[in-house]
């Protein structure tokens, strides 16, 4: 799949943002006034910034409000609704907590739940795609949730929780690489099932057109896959494993925490790029790919 920068930024930043908001809604850390304001500012900036950047890849951003209408069937619609609801509820909670010094625990709790639900619905947009076997698996929501909770805990200065969830994310990511590399074949997709031409050796003789098209650009992206192995190791080690070890092995001061955040965000961006760039869509079969 085409690794669109707007989508990579959106899923990474809003994942972090909603992760942070989850903890703020649970009153973790227990702070007030300007300190709390700063925490909420970062949380909203990341989540809203992510949401805005995701509208950049739409053909008609001015109609985006329509995307809230199909919650009965569409995960993208559900994501939009959860995101708006989470931001409204936590906005109210933050307003009361910062300016009126009243923390309504129930409101914060609902906001936290909605934040996690938003991350889950985001992950389900990818997980539901049977056409992309690498994504179509329970490890995808687990990965998105553990990254979001781990990263959010890191920003919310909850080092032990952060370490625990980044450990889960490390293991899930490693498993997702391993399982994802096999799944396309395991599902039995091939040029033979795609065309129904069964008896004999089969190959693409001629594509339908000499140039490129939307399908090839959007879904048969293959540029840069040669760097995939190196990026995998970099992302896994520096973005997840090293932060996990640092968080779990010692008391983390401000400077070290800052360094871990930079490592982690950089690593997750690389991993998210791979999440798209490595994903094989079955339509590639018709163009002689993945065979």
């Amino acid at each position: 799949m085409h690794p669109a920068p707007s989508i990579i930024l959106f899923t990474t930043l809003s994942g972090l943002g909603f992760g942070l908001l989850t903890f703020l809604g649970l009153n973790m850390p227990d702070v007030d006034g300007w300190v709390l304001f700063t925490f909420f500012f970062v949380g909203f900036a990341l989540s809203v910034g992510g949401l805005l950047s995701s509208t950049f890849h739409l053909g008609h951003p001015e109609r985006a409000w329509r995307a809230l209408s199909q919650w009965k069937s569409s995960w993208l619609s559900r994501e939009g609704i959860c995101a708006v609801a989470a931001l409204c509820v936590l906005g109210l909670y933050a307003l009361l907590a910062i300016f009126f010094d009243t923390k309504v625990a129930a409101l914060g709790f609902v906001g936290s739940a909605l934040s996690l639900l938003t991350v889950f619905t985001t992950s389900m947009i990818y997980t539901q795609m049977k056409t992309v076997p690498r994504w179509n698996h329970w490890s995808t929501p687990l990965l998105f949730l553990s990254l979001s909770i781990g990263g959010g805990a890191l920003l919310a200065a909850q080092t032990a929780v952060a370490g625990l969830f980044l450990l889960i994310a490390t293991l899930t990511q490693a498993f997702a690489f391993w399982g994802g590399d096999r799944r396309f074949k395991d599902r039995g997709h091939s040029l033979k099932t795609a065309t129904g031409l069964q008896n004999g050796e089969l190959r693409l003789f001629e594509p339908p057109h000499t140039g490129t098209n939307y399908l090839l650009k959007e879904m048969v992206h293959q540029i840069g896959r040669k760097h995939a192995q190196r990026l995998r190791v970099l992302g896994l080690v520096f973005g997840l494993a090293l932060p996990t070890v640092l968080l779990l092995s010692q008391t983390v001061g401000h400077v070290l925490a800052g360094l871990i955040v930079v490592l982690h965000v950089g690593g997750v961006l690389a991993l998210r790029w791979l999440f798209f760039a490595e994903a094989e869509h079955v339509v590639g079969l018709y163009y002689g790919k993945h065979g």
Binding site: I125, E218, H281
Partner: peptide, 13 residues
Amino acid sequence: IGCGLCAWACPYG
């Protein structure tokens, strides 16, 4: 809105 999700969901291009 041109989100392109339906094109992702179609196995046949």
